[in-house]
Computed example of a mutant assay.
Amino acid sequence: MIEAAMIWNEPNNKSHWDPALDPDWSRFSDMVTRAGSAIRQANPDVTRVLGGMSPIDPLWLQRVEGHGGLDEVDVIAIHGFPLDWNLWPIHAWPDKIAEIEAVTEKPIWVTEVGVGSFGAEEVQVFGVNRTAELLIGRVPRIFWYSLFDLPHSWGAETRHREAEGSSYYRHFYMGLIREDGTPKPSLDDYARVASEMGLMQWFHYQDPRLDDAVAWMKRLGTRHLRTGLSWADSFRPNATDWFDRQMDALADFDVTLTFCFTPEHLGDGQHHTSPPRDPQQFADFCGWAIDRYAPAVTRTAVTA
């Protein structure tokens, strides 16, 4: 069920990786190389994806490549939210993809794309349809962010929260389904392209929405899902039981599984954005997860 493993999330976004502790991304590149190697050793058939960059920045990608950070990845991922956070129009999607194609021969996936509904739910309807027009057939994988609105009481998993300014509130309106469980108008439009445009949905530790998400995705005809396992959560009580339940519930989908979030006690900055003091510990977590949830299949030659 796990077709791909994504190494980190938005590493060139300071909400997810602290550039003050790794100003040239050399530590990040070393971590990615170790993690990619561990994933390959656990199962060479799992596609390894570099954490989706946001903003889309070819110079950043070249810097990571210069540190050897692309040696153990198969796919480059990008994220874009042109109607909410980015400073380019939605119609520029083909140009943004071309910018990355110009500096790498690796395939490109769009692993987060979305349009919020805060200003008007009709804007999200337009966003779903225009995104589908621009991206389906242009890249091999697309993941719409997200299925559910983020509950206001939870808070977004981002470093600066309200200090990000007035755009922080948009985190809570990116779903196709409202916090109260009712569908937005855009859900019907997404359903028409669900087989070609997957969903990206984070599941928090012991997330009560897991079973509802599975039911909705099956009803919609979604085939591809991107989600994550938090390295930080792996230190919570009964973490493996939760991971097992999550992966079992998602067994009917082709999953891109994201590994990210540094445990506070293992990072220089005591924060989930911090580079780990020992990057091999993150690599070991990635290898453990793939070995547990996507073990390699031993192929035995059969002779007549």
Rank of each mutant, 00 (worst) to 15 (best):
F282Q: 08
L199N: 06
W288S: 14
T262K: 00
D241A: 15
M247W: 08
F282E: 07
S195P: 00
Q206A: 09
A194N: 04
T262L: 03
N238M: 10
P279I: 03
P276D: 04
A194C: 03
W242H: 08
M247H: 08
L187F: 06
I290H: 08
Q270R: 14
R226G: 14
C260E: 15
C260N: 15
S234H: 13
V214N: 02
H224S: 09
D284F: 03
L229K: 09
M200E: 12
E196A: 05
A194H: 02
P237M: 08
D278C: 01
F253M: 06
Y190W: 07
T222L: 07
F285N: 03
T227R: 11
H204T: 11
R219T: 10
D278T: 00
S230Y: 12
L187T: 05
D268Y: 14
E264K: 15
T262S: 06
G198L: 06
L187P: 01
H271V: 10
D252E: 11
L220E: 04
L266I: 04
T262H: 01
W202G: 14
T262Y: 00
A194D: 05
W231D: 02
F253I: 04
R192H: 02
D244N: 01
Y190D: 05
D248G: 10
F261N: 13
L257Y: 15
T227H: 13
G267V: 00
G198D: 07
L266M: 12
A232E: 11
A191C: 07
N238H: 14
M217E: 01
M217P: 06
P276V: 03
R209K: 10
A239G: 06
W231R: 06
D244V: 00
P237H: 04
I290F: 09
L229H: 09
R277G: 07
I290N: 10
D254M: 09
P279R: 04
P208Y: 01
M217N: 06
G267M: 01
R209W: 03
T273C: 11
T240V: 13
L187S: 02
Y205K: 07
G228T: 14
L250G: 08
R223L: 06
G221D: 00
F235H: 15
H272I: 14
E196S: 04
D248P: 01
A283P: 03
R277A: 05
G287Q: 05
D188F: 04
A249V: 01
L220N: 02
T256Y: 12
R236Y: 12
A251Q: 14
D252H: 09
H265M: 11
G228Y: 15
H265V: 05
S195H: 07
G221E: 02
G198T: 06
Q281D: 13
D241L: 13
H204I: 08
A194F: 03
C260A: 15
A251M: 07
F259L: 15
M197R: 07
R209A: 07
F285G: 03
R192N: 01
A283L: 04
A251R: 14
C260H: 15
G221K: 03
W231S: 06
W231E: 05
A215Y: 02
M197V: 09
L225I: 14
H265A: 12
A251T: 09
A191D: 01
R219C: 05
L225K: 10
G287N: 03
Q201D: 07
Q280E: 10
Y190I: 08
F259K: 10
H272R: 13
M200Y: 15
T240D: 11
H272P: 12
T258N: 15
T273P: 05
L250K: 08
D189Q: 13
V255S: 12
T222K: 02
P237R: 09
S230M: 08
